[in-house]
């Protein structure tokens, strides 16, 4: 499935019923050098628009919200060792976590790549 995007600058990629979540290149550029990522625990139930993770740059801490309802099934442990992966490869190796979805139809509310691009240009 093609990537979807949220207004909170997360990307979502669905494969075999599991969604991989990360932050967009736009988000990592705005945040600057990322020095720490706090990921949710595996098994944690997330609610759409609720707190999911925290990214810390040298300057400040920023919340990452869950773009969908579901449960965390895997986290990117590489970010613990190398948080800069989020700056270097935000939309590939710098993914945050994977979740099983409560309601796949929520994906329809998210933007596709072209819509997200328009959204960012309008900011």
């Amino acid at each position: 499935m093609a990537k979807k995007f949220s207004q909170e600058h997360e990307w979502i990629e669905l494969e075999d019923g599991i969604a991989t979540i990360g932050i967009t290149d736009y988000a990592q550029q705005s945040l600057g050098d990322i020095v720490y990522v706090e990921l949710p625990e595996i098994g944690k139930k997330l609610t759409k628009d609720g707190d999911a993770a925290v990214v810390e740059s040298v300057k400040a801490a920023s919340d990452v919200y869950a773009p969908l309802d579901g449960e965390v099934v895997e986290i990117n442990e590489d970010l613990d060792v190398n948080p800069a992966l989020v700056n270097e490869a935000p939309e590939t190796d710098g993914w945050f976590f994977r979740m099983s979805l409560t309601d796949e139809s929520q994906l329809d509310e998210l933007m596709d790549e072209a819509a997200y691009k328009d959204f960012v240009e309008g900011l």
């Binding site: 600057g32 050098d33 020095v35 740059s57 040298v58 300057k59």
Partner: peptide, 9 residues
């Protein structure tokens, strides 16, 4: 607050 080099750089 920062230049293109970034806070860390």
């Amino acid at each position: 607050v920062q230049f293109p080099l970034g806070v860390k750089g």
